[in-house]
Nucleic acid binder design. Sequence first.
DNA 1: TTGATTGTTGGTAAATGGGCCAATAGGTCA
DNA 2: TGACCTATTGGCCCATTTACCAACAATCAA
Lengths: 106, 106
Amino acid sequence: MITFEEAVIRSNIIKAMAHPVRLLIIEYLKEGPQAFSEIFGLFDLDKSTVSKHLHVLKETGIVTSRKSGADMVYTLEVPCVTDFFGCVTAVIENNVRRQQVCLCKR
Amino acid sequence: MITFEEAVIRSNIIKAMAHPVRLLIIEYLKEGPQAFSEIFGLFDLDKSTVSKHLHVLKETGIVTSRKSGADMVYTLEVPCVTDFFGCVTAVIENNVRRQQVCLCKR
DNA sequence: TTGATTGTTGGTAAATGGGCCAATAGGTCA
DNA sequence: TGACCTATTGGCCCATTTACCAACAATCAA
């Protein structure tokens, strides 16, 4: 078993991924580093909102940023986070399977 | 890229894991199904609080529950969620590495 | 320097999350 | 049946999150 303190640290990192906008940003950065303006263009949100989401990802060490000319470029630092989504997909598939069983029984 | 709707579904599952108590419950259930009273005993929390955390895990399909005599027994349905923590650890190690660099520069 | 463009920060309101207590539901067992 | 035990649900309060707008900082061009 892990300690409670360790669980707090882990949950903070997981929390950073626990938002649809931040998930999409991570997915997008899998393709390579991207400028803020490109990331911003993915969403129908205020600039400041997207900036704050990126700040959360930076704080937890999932992405980093650097200036490049006029742009701010964001880079995914931990590519393995995407492996994890395979597990999330497994959860979803498991749910679908169980729902089908429910439907059959009715 | 995934759709926004898909990202919402995924983030709901990730959210279910984004709490230290729920992480510890998942860790505990890796060892096998456990009665509510055993899970409850891990924490210094109200019964109702632990019950609500388990409810969140049930809703997302991460655990299931069944009655066994007087007890309610919880089972981890998606063992792969634990693989994912390897990635979280990678994020943590990456953070430590970068912090050390910072310390060296100062 | 001035003006335009780009991204961050501060403030605030609404929504969500997490804790406890009290009440309830659903079993078990004498 | 009635008393008891176990887990869940409802209600409430406080803290956090997330969105927008507005103001600010920082950079590039003229």
